[in-house]
């Protein structure tokens, strides 16, 4: 099974929808609420998000090698099935 990583913000509704998507389908995933991290770790994580997605906006979902910026259910499904 592909690894799933969700970079989220605790204030972002689409991030919550992404969490619900994985949970309701029992898809194992890791996530981090970036805004709740301690300052130094937050900066590092945001830099990583910016490097992989080109943006400082959330959610960013990494499924295997694929990076999905924003909540796009169709792309998530496709990436999981590939």
């Amino acid at each position: 099974m592909k690894s799933v990583m969700l970079y989220a913000l605790s204030t972002c509704p689409f991030c919550k929808m992404a969490k619900r998507f994985f949970e309701s389908r029992n898809i194992p995933y890791n996530f981090v609420d970036v805004d709740l991290l301690p300052e130094e770790e937050k900066e590092k994580t945001v830099a990583e998000v910016q490097r992989i997605s080109g943006r400082r906006a959330f959610p960013v979902i990494v499924i295997g090698e694929e990076v999905i910026v924003g909540y796009d259910e169709l792309r998530i499904r496709e990436a999981l099935e590939k």
């Binding site: 913000l9 204030t11 972002c12 509704p13 689409f14 919550k16 937050k42 945001v46 959610p59």
Partner: peptide, 27 residues
């Protein structure tokens, strides 16, 4: 239907950071 969760999120940003910053952006 996204409107109400987003109004709530904007109010949370206002409480935490002092203005209605986008709930889906870190800055």
């Amino acid at each position: 239907e996204m409107k109400e969760p987003l109004i709530e999120a904007l109010l949370k940003k206002y409480e935490r950071y002092g203005d209605f910053y986008c709930p889906c952006k870190i800055d």
